Amino acid sequence: MLLTAGGLTPMTPTECPMSLFGDALDKTRQRVQQETLGHRGRTGDPLYGCRRLLRTALGLLKQHQLAKLETVFDAHPDHVAVEVTWDIYQRAIAAYRHDDPARGKKIFERVIAVLSSEVPRDLPELISLGRTITRRAKDILAFFDHPGTSNGPSEALNGRLEHLRGTALGFRNLTHYIARSLLEAGGFRPQLHAQMR
């Protein structure tokens, strides 16, 4: 879920913005690998060998790792597609990591603008990403308007309730299920425990 101006909007884990950017980068790398070498990545293949480096934030890469990426990007003309996708991925990371949320929002708005209008036809992964990011732009940009918000606590409670539902093997009485859910989630603990004395 993402916080929006109108409340919480459901967003599946596979729709998480950085997950989408990372998936587009992986798919581009795999497609270019297949097109240039005719097989999936193997040990010794340049793109396969740097798959983890591609997913690492630019600020965390050491000089020799940057040099390795430059070598891979220059190794074949088709690797430009991977380089372009990697650049978009790094811009998205920079937006989320920026100290100033307003500046981070501007960076991400520029990424959305690039993805929605300036992507060449031979980059289908970025075109697909652009459609998704443009459609969810309002939800994604809300992160920068409300810095520090997280749905982590809600997800933690949801996980506990899902575990309860799985171990309960069915409740016949709704009141019992609600009471057990409150006990499991820690809600109204003092009042419930007071009644059990």
Score class of each variant (00 low, 15 high):
15 E>P: 00
16 C>A: 11
16 C>K: 11
17 P>L: 13
18 M>K: 01
19 S>N: 13
19 S>V: 15
19 S>D: 12
19 S>Q: 12
19 S>E: 12
20 L>E: 13
21 F>E: 03
21 F>S: 04
22 G>M: 10
23 D>R: 14
24 A>P: 04
24 A>K: 04
24 A>L: 02
26 D>H: 04
26 D>I: 13
31 R>E: 09
31 R>L: 01
31 R>N: 07
31 R>K: 06
32 V>C: 07
33 Q>A: 03
33 Q>N: 10
33 Q>F: 07
34 Q>R: 14
35 E>F: 00
35 E>S: 06
36 T>H: 09
37 L>G: 01
38 G>I: 03
38 G>Q: 10
38 G>R: 11
39 H>A: 07
39 H>K: 14
40 R>W: 10
40 R>D: 12
42 R>H: 15
42 R>G: 10
43 T>I: 14
43 T>Y: 15
44 G>M: 12
44 G>L: 13
45 D>S: 03
45 D>R: 02
46 P>I: 05
47 L>Q: 10
47 L>F: 06
47 L>P: 09
47 L>I: 13
48 Y>H: 15
48 Y>E: 10
51 R>F: 00
51 R>T: 02
51 R>L: 01
51 R>V: 00
53 L>T: 05
53 L>H: 05
53 L>S: 08
54 L>Q: 00
55 R>K: 15
55 R>N: 09
56 T>L: 02
56 T>N: 00
58 L>G: 03
